[in-house]
Structure formats: structure tokens, C-alpha cells
Design a protein around this nucleic acid. Structure first.
Lengths: 117, 117
DNA sequence: TACCAAGCTGGAGCAACTTCAGGTCAAGGC
DNA sequence: GCCTTGACCTGAAGTTGCTCCAGCTTGGTA
């Protein structure tokens, strides 16, 4: 699979995929004889994970650490697990931020209540 | 109130407050005879709103629009209401992103299930 | 053979901060 | 009276994470 289709499947843009590869947070994207990228099912799996991690605020540094652990082999699985568990904790924080922001908006909107629009 | 206390109260950093003022998204911060900023209760209210809006992903452009509407007077209240309602919609989208990311993490973690850590 | 779409690289541009260098100003200590 | 300290100031440079662009290659079609 080429980069355009990969982008459609994982949710990232073509440019972002190239940028992520250059940044070393996507392991081993093969090249064809034409020097163009060919994406495997695992590549797509990985990129899709990155799509969700970045969309929920994981910094590239952390993604880089995750990718490095992956490259280091199976014995790093406990560490990788920790990275994902820490992010799951972070999601909780984000959720409570959403709750709090909703309250703030509701309060503001209540003040505007008598106005049309 | 000076900038250090204002930062503590609204959640933004001192630098971010200055940056926001310079960007024109905070209406009228008074200065003392020493040319330093003095924050009113309304300033804190406003900055606190900005804190929550940025923390949930509102772009500066939109904040700028909101501030401009505010400066233009009470007749813009319906428009301001629209900005906040649109952001409330955006929060829903964010929430479903969190849900989706939690699923993805759970799936990954399940694969790692037999490893300690 | 000429052209077109899709892909490539390196580099510039951008949003939203963050950090830094260098300076002012009021208050407290000697 | 002077010196130091700490909070604050400004303008500018640096950082992160993309996003866009110019100019080139390559494979397929007419």
C-alpha cells in the first residue's frame, strides 16, 4: 500500500506520516524498487495508534520513547505497557477538563440567556 | 492584583497572560503608576475562561473573534453565544475521541496482558 | 514520445507558546 | 544615601508539531 491509501486508513495526513517517519517514531517502513514507501498492515496499525495518541495529547517525545522500546525488542513490553497506562491516566484528566469546561460554558451561556442567537 | 497572583488564579502562566494581552484576546488590562499590570475581577474571569477554552482546543483566532465581539458591545451577545455553543459542540467531539482512544489503548493493553509491569 | 498523477526530498512557514537577555522600579538592609 | 533583592517589564529568539511549497523522479497511458 502506498502513502495516500495509508493516510486514508490511519487518519494522519501524508505529510504527517512522512514527518513521523523522519522523526523516528514509526518503525521500518519498507521501500519499493521505485524508492517509494510501501505500508504493511503493521505499519497501518502503528500509525493508527499514533493518530489516536497525538489526538489525545501525547507529546512526540513520549511517542519516540514508545517506538524506541518497540525497536529494542519484546523484553520492553512491560515498559511499553507503562507508557500506555500512563496515557490512559492522562485521558482521565482530559475528560475532567472537558467536564469543567462544559460547566464554565454553561455558566457563561446562562448569563447570555435572554438574547437570541 | 499583580500578574503573579493573576496567573495563580486563572491557571495560565505569567508569560501566557502577557502573550494573550499582546495578541489582543484580553480586553483592557489596566496599568499602575509603575506601568505594571493590575488585574480586575473581570480580567481574572476572562483569563479563566480563556484557560478552559485553550485547554479544550479553541484556536487563538476564535478567541480573538470572541474578544473582538466583546469589545464591540452588548449587541454582539448573540454572536458570542454562537461561539461558545460551537465550542460546546466541539467538546462532544473531543469526548468521543477520548472514548475511541481508550478503546484503542484497551485493545493494545490486552495484547500485552501476560507481561508484568 | 509526451504528458500526467503520485511520490520524493529539503526547506520555509505557521500556531501557540516558552525562554532569554537586558532593563525598570519599589522596598528593605547597612 | 547606596546597594541589593525580587517582581515586573519589553522585544526577540527558540521550541514543538505540524503544513505547505518548489523542484525533481518515476510509472503508466495516449
Amino acid at each position: 500500500m502506498r502513502i495516500a491509501e495509508a493516510a486514508l486508513r490511519c487518519g494522519l495526513s501524508v505529510d504527517t506520516i512522512r514527518y513521523y517517519e523522519k522523526s523516528g517514531i514509526v518503525p521500518e517502513i519498507r521501500r519499493g524498487p521505485d524508492r517509494q514507501r510501501r505500508f504493511s498492515a503493521e505499519n497501518i496499525e502503528w500509525l493508527t495508534l499514533l493518530f489516536w495518541l497525538r489526538g489525545t495529547g501525547m507529546p512526540m517525545k513520549t511517542m519516540y520513547r514508545f517506538a524506541s522500546l518497540y525497536r529494542a525488542g519484546d523484553h520492553t513490553i512491560p515498559d511499553r505497557k507503562q507508557v500506555l497506562l500512563a496515557h490512559a491516566e492522562h485521558l482521565k484528566k482530559r475528560r475532567s477538563d472537558l467536564d469543567r469546561c462544559e460547566e464554565v460554558l454553561a455558566r457563561k451561556l446562562a448569563i447570555y440567556k435572554d438574547h437570541e442567537g
